[in-house]
Every structure is written in C-alpha cells, then in structure tokens.
C-alpha cells in the first residue's frame, strides 16, 4: 500500500523519506504485538491456582471488576475490584488476587482484607501490555474461591512523544 501511494505521486527525496517513515511506523506496531504475545490465559490460571493452593475458582456474579472499556495508555489503567460480602467476622473476604491473561507475567496484585475493611473493595492502577482479560479471584472466609473477569482494550498510540 505504501509503495502504491508513493509512486502515484512524484517521488523525490523527501517523499521517499516520508514513505520510509510511514513503513517503519507500521513495522514498529507489528513488532510490539509479537513481543507482547508471550503470556496466555493458561499461565494466568496456573498462577491463580498456586496462589489459592490449588482450589479452582468458580465464576460468581458477586465479583465485579471495574475497568475502563478502553485504556488510552497501557501504563496506567485504573482497576477496582468489588466483592459483594457483608465483611463480618463470620463471613468476609480474606484475599483478592488480581491476574492478567496477556501480560509478560500474569500476577498483578493481591489485596488481603479483614473484617475491619467494612466493604470488600480495593482499587489500584495496573500496567497492561495489550488488550486482554483481567481476572479477580476472591478467597472467602468459608474457604470458597470465587472469580470474575473483564476485558480491557489497550490502544497503541500513533505518536505520544
């Protein structure tokens, strides 16, 4: 495509440099995608399994993940995990593991909660290498493990300086 465009117009030194520049941008974009495609959902599941001592999480609507639908930069993506729980001594969330399915490493963070929290919600900001799912796995005081999942689209900017 770039070839056609540049030959359809008078080709001179500046035009050629411009064309090369355009090509380089596309190549850079392709390289980035290839480099980041080195983690998979299985890695995330394995990581989570290690954290929870092999207990398989069950999808549960009580786990909600708030992420922007599109992150304009993967460096700083706000994330909030909320688990619907009374947070009493008898019934509370003990841990929330947050895991990425498409980062070089699956781990993001683990929040350790106590009944003093009053509400099972925690927020932070994470790095996302590319568009992927974020999984939150909550360990409850009764020993059960529940999870939720949400996708975030990460844009690769055109410039960014």
């Amino acid at each position: 495509m770039t070839q056609q465009r540049s030959t359809s117009l008078t080709l001179n030194r500046r035009g050629l440099l411009g064309a090369l520049g355009g090509g380089a941008l596309v190549a850079a974009g392709a390289g980035m995608t290839a480099r980041n495609a080195d983690a998979a959902p299985e890695d995330a599941a394995k990581w989570a399994s290690e954290l929870t001592g092999g207990r398989n999480p069950v999808d549960d609507p009580r786990v909600a993940i708030d992420l922007p639908p599109i992150a304009e930069n993967g460096n700083t993506v706000p994330v909030t995990v909320t688990v619907d729980s009374p947070m009493t001594d008898a019934d509370h969330v003990t841990k929330i593991h947050v895991v990425a399915e498409g980062n070089p490493n699956p781990g993001l963070c683990t929040f350790e909660l106590t009944p003093a929290c009053g509400k099972a919600e925690a927020s932070t900001r994470i790095r996302m290498a590319r568009t992927q799912n974020v999984v939150a796995i909550a360990e409850l005081s009764d020993g059960s493990v529940i999870s939720g999942k949400k996708e975030v689209k990460v844009t690769v900017g055109g410039c960014g300086g």
Binding site: T2, S6, G15, L25, G158
Partner: peptide, 24 residues
C-alpha cells in the same frame, strides 16, 4: 506534495484501529 505523502501515510497507517478507536 512530499508532506502530503508523509501525512497521508501517517493517518492511513491503521485506518481500522482509528475507526474502532473513534467509536470508543
């Protein structure tokens, strides 16, 4: 003309992503 080539290439590089992006 040369500048137009560069600008067109830059703007046309990923039209698909641009359309998806604009929607969001």
């Amino acid at each position: 003309v040369p500048g137009v080539v560069a600008a067109v290439l830059l703007l046309a590089a990923t039209t698909g992503a641009a359309q998806e992006g604009s929607a969001v």
